[in-house]
């Protein structure tokens, strides 16, 4: 290792070599120029282009997503609206039906009431008429009875009996 130490001290490892510096510089510059022309230009421009392409694709995808979301939202809104509309229609229909039913039943009731009252009126009228007729008949009968009583005897008791029996007769007859 002594010799290597000497070599180090002699400066072999760190010794300047103008020839090598010259060739390194020349070689490096030429490589730089050639590579710039044949490689870095096309590669970097391709990378840039692809970067832009990817960016625009991402942008487009985002845009498409946003559009799709907007459409979906719109559809949902429409659907909700349609649902509400349907609900409303059904509700209205039900309400209408209820109202109609109520109306009809009310009307029917009113009708029936009216009919009943009509019937009652009629019955009343008939009754009144019957009573009138009865009254006339009773009066006639009374008159006839009186005639008979007067004709047979003018006995008060008898007369009373006769009138009673007549009334009895009338009542049975009428019923």
């Amino acid at each position: 290792m002594l010799t290597s130490g000497n070599i180090l001290l002699a400066g072999s490892l760190l010794s300047p070599n103008p020839g090598l510096i010259f060739w390194t510089a020349i070689t490096f510059v030429i490589v730089l120029i050639i590579l710039k022309k044949i490689a870095w230009g096309p590669i970097i421009s391709a990378l840039d282009e692809r970067e832009k392409g990817i960016q625009s694709s991402i942008d487009r995808a985002h845009k498409a997503k946003e559009e799709a979301e907007a459409i979906l939202k719109k559809n949902r809104d429409t659907l909700a609206k349609a649902d509400a509309e349907a609900d409303r229609i059904i509700r209205e229909g039900k309400e209408y039906a209820d109202k109609l039913r109520a109306d009809i039943s009310e009307k029917a009731q009113a009708e029936s009431k009216k009919m009943i009252s009509n019937a009652k009126d009629e019955i009343e009228q008939e009754k009144r008429r019957a009573l009138d007729v009865l009254r006339n008949e009773v009066a006639d009968l009374a008159v006839k009875g009186a005639e008979k009583i007067i004709k047979t005897t003018l006995d008060a008791d008898l007369q009373k009996k006769i009138v009673d029996s007549m009334i009895q007769d009338l009542s049975t007859k009428r019923n």
Partner: peptide
């Protein structure tokens, strides 16, 4: 001294490979 040394040759080999590759 602008001699072509071992390391200069290596630099050229490197350059040749780089240029061919790229």
């Amino acid at each position: 001294d602008l001699s072509i040394t071992k390391h200069v040759v290596m630099l050229w080999v490197v350059s040749a490979i780089l240029i061919a590759l790229f």
